[in-house]
């Protein structure tokens, strides 16, 4: 089956991201396809490039990046929710006259239309709330 995940919970402040990552791995282990993870609401903070948790805690960005590297899972971040929260890639940083950037590939800033397409295009969308 084709799965998708909508993540609304921020990293380390809610369990949502850990639950979603674990669910994603279980979906793939059962032979399904994961068409994408969409980050929205506080979930966009999972894309923070500078995330630096203590070494004895799971590194969420590394977890998401691993999912993309191993299985090619697209990591889609709502651009409107991200910009409000200070999350932007190099292109947006330039556009907004900011020094430095807080989001990088394989995370991609995209619009909510992608969430709609993902949700209606896949067989199962599972939301992990804050």
């Amino acid at each position: 089956m084709r799965y998708a995940i909508l993540l609304l919970g921020g990293p380390y402040s809610a369990q949502a991201a850990h639950s979603a990552l674990r669910f994603a791995r279980a979906v793939l282990a059962r032979g399904h396809r994961l068409e994408g993870v969409f980050f929205y609401h506080d979930g966009v903070q999972n894309a923070a490039r500078l995330m630096a948790p203590p070494q004895d805690e799971p590194h969420l960005v590394d977890g998401w990046v691993g999912l993309n590297a191993e299985q090619g899972v697209p990591l889609m971040v709502c651009i409107a929710a991200a910009l409000r929260r200070g999350l932007m890639d190099e292109r947006e940083a330039t556009r907004h006259g900011k020094q430095g950037h807080s989001v990088e590939a394989p995370f991609e800033l995209t619009g909510l239309g992608q969430l709609v397409d993902l949700g209606l295009g896949c067989d199962r969308l599972v939301t992990f709330g804050p």
Partner: peptide, 30 residues
């Protein structure tokens, strides 16, 4: 698409972000 809205205005961004998702879906002809 059914968008369930459980949060009020002003207290959090969930209502606004839920409405945004609904508007975009409608704009895409859903």
């Amino acid at each position: 698409l059914l968008v369930i809205l459980r949060h009020g205005p002003h207290g959090s961004s969930l209502l606004r972000e839920g409405l945004d998702a609904a508007l975009v879906a409608a704009a895409f002809g859903r």
